[in-house]
Design a protein around this nucleic acid. Structure first.
Length: 524
RNA sequence: GCCCCCAUCGUCUAGCGGCCCAGGAUUCCGCCCUUUCAAGGCGGCGGCACGGGUUCGAAUCCCGUUGGGGGCGCCA
């Protein structure tokens, strides 16, 4: 295995199998990441010099997959007392936007993922935004060119596409064929005279390359698939393959935790790091989060961005807890983990290798649990926002009193307004309520009379219950028979928070008005 | 097409050769509680993809098959 020997013989690149949990390969280096091998049994990820990062490209809202990667990386840093870095990879100028960076920052902060270095906080290894480090990448590219580790490629995108199609039709692996690697002096001069634009490609060594991964162990990529790749576009902007590798070295990352989709790029980045004469970080490639069909999570799926979950009334601790369990578990039993417990228990080497299906039902269940544990103040504030989003002004004081009626009835706070709308806006009985009201004029009139007997000052859930239960018994009705029509009249629905408390909060006059109106109108 | 990764209830997972005729959570179903809906309690259905090895013994190790996923860009 040539890849093994390449990396395995030089002292800078020595790795060995240590008894990780699961007998996986773990990197061993003498000086750079001593924290990884403290006890020789598994990488405990302790030590102040652990450095992890999240390096998203700002092309839209923060996707749950990236959010989970950020979380795992952050947990690894926090657990070790190390450093967490946010780096913005905006080298795709077509798609990157400043707005996306703002959303990214907001989403991460909302999740409670903070960074020690990066945008808005600075740090010793800036810039943390790649388009602000362009000359640095240009310098590295020049150096690679000078050292013969890279070369100019004059092939146009059209030519490349044609040759790719051709290779595909011949049943060969598509990929750069190395055409410009050994251009003659004459050919080179001709292209230069033409003023033909060029990109810069990295010259791969032509050997197999083995990657060690904290989660997967050892993987060898055959040389035939490791084609020369573009590190610098013709417009002077570096590609991800160069920028990420250079920055991971520059920012002294010890652990690179990222999605499995990036695994095939690892041997290339390893080579770039080698060319830089740098020690590689430990890699951990996370299994992907997929949609219900096992397919890639698409926009068609309920909500894929953290921003959307926030808008719908999910709690950050619920999303964090749920995401943590996507591909990881502390043990056979534990489901709920606080942020502190996660930091305490998280171990990236225990991450599963299987793709995880995002199960919205379970997230909702978990969110319901966290809602039940939340304070009234917080829920009232969130409900206020939800009402505002619906265009219904909701009195904060009344909302605060209403929270106990709904907190164990919501999976997401966004469901609150439907449950409490009757308190803040007029009601029109829905279809089921209308049906429940049919022929109930007598009952409603009696209820009105009974409640009229309660003075303003004695209008509480218990006095209301006492009065209405008395009525129910006097009429010889089952509770349900007596209360459903009243519920329909007061709330306009057949499903509502508990009736007596609801009536108390609605208030004496509005309640009586609704009862009278329904008794004379629909109830007749 | 080629390369790489992966494979335990529908879903998330525990499992590191005997503790497992496989444990937890969610979903679904039933019962209890109950003024509706929830919440809560109790119970139930449901899984080691398949085929070969290795071993006294395999969900666990090896090989193959099948299935799924990722990648093969002047995207990241």
């Amino acid at each position: 295995m040539s890849g093994r020997s390449r990396l395995g013989t030089s002292s800078r690149w020595r790795w060995r199998a240590s008894g990780c949990s699961r007998t996986r390969w773990c990197p061993v280096t003498d000086e750079t990441v001593p924290a990884l091998v403290a006890d020789g049994t598994r990488p405990p990820a302790t030590g102040r010099d652990v450095r992890c990062r999240i390096a998203p490209s700002p092309t839209g809202e923060l996707h749950v997959g990236n959010a989970r990667t950020a979380l795992f990386s952050w947990l690894t840093a926090r657990r070790s007392g190390g450093t967490f870095v946010l780096r913005v990879e905006d080298t795709d100028r077509e798609r990157s936007t400043d707005e996306a960076i703002e959303i990214l920052i907001r989403s991460l902060r909302w999740l409670g993922i903070d960074w020690d270095e990066g945008p808005e906080v600075g740090g010793p290894y800036g810039p943390y935004r790649q388009t602000e480090a362009l000359d640095l990448f240009a310098g590295v590219t020049r150096r690679f060119l000078d050292e013969g580790r890279a070369y100019r490629c004059y092939c146009t995108p059209e030519e490349l596409e044609d040759r790719r199609q051709e290779a595909l039709s011949r049943g060969e692996t598509p990929g750069y064929d190395g055409r410009c690697r050994n251009l003659s002096a004459a050919e080179l001069a001709a292209f230069e005279r033409e003023g033909r634009p060029f990109a810069v490609r990295f010259a791969m060594p032509g050997t197999d390359i083995t990657v060690w991964d904290l989660i997967r162990g050892e993987t060898t990529f055959p040389a035939s698939d490791l084609r020369d790749f573009v590190i610098m576009r013709s417009n002077g902007i570096p590609t991800y393959l160069l920028a990420a590798a250079v920055d991971d070295v520059r920012m002294k990352m010890t652990h690179v935790i990222r999605g499995e989709d990036l695994m095939p790029s690892t041997p290339r980045q390893l080579e770039v790091m080698r060319a830089l004469g740098a020690e590689p970080p430990a890699y951990a490639h996370l299994p992907l989060i997929v949609g219900p069909g096992g397919q890639k999570l698409s926009k068609r799926f309920h909500a894929v961005s953290v921003e959307r979950f926030r808008e719908e009334g999910f709690l950050p601790e619920a999303l964090v807890n749920y995401m943590a369990l996507l591909g990881w578990s502390r043990d056979a039993e534990t489901t709920f983990l606080s942020r502190e417990e996660l930091i305490e228990a998280f171990d990236v080497t225990r991450v599963s290798r299987n793709p995880a299906v995002f199960d919205l039902a379970k997230l909702e269940w978990m969110n319901g649990h966290y809602i039940r544990e939340s304070s009234g103040e917080r829920l009232a504030a969130m409900l206020g926002e939800a009402f505002a989003a619906d265009g219904v002004p909701a009195d904060p004081a009344l909302l605060m009193r209403a929270v106990p009626l709904v907190k164990e009835r919501m999976k997401v706070v966004g469901e609150g307004p439907a449950l409490l709308r009757f308190l803040f806006a007029g009601v029109e009985p829905d279809e089921r309520a209308a049906k429940a009201l049919e022929g109930q004029a007598g009952l409603l009139a009696e209820a009105t009379a009974v409640l009229e007997g309660l003075p303003e000052g004695g209008w509480t859930a218990s006095t209301i219950e006492e009065a209405l239960r008395g009525l129910q018994e006097r009429l010889g009705l089952k509770p349900k028979e007596a209360f459903q029509p009243i519920r329909a009249a007061v709330t306009g629905t057949t499903v509502s928070p508990p009736l007596f408390e609801s009536i108390e909060l609605l208030g004496r006059e509005p309640t009586l008005a609704r009862l009278r109106a329904t008794a004379t109108a629909g109830g007749a």
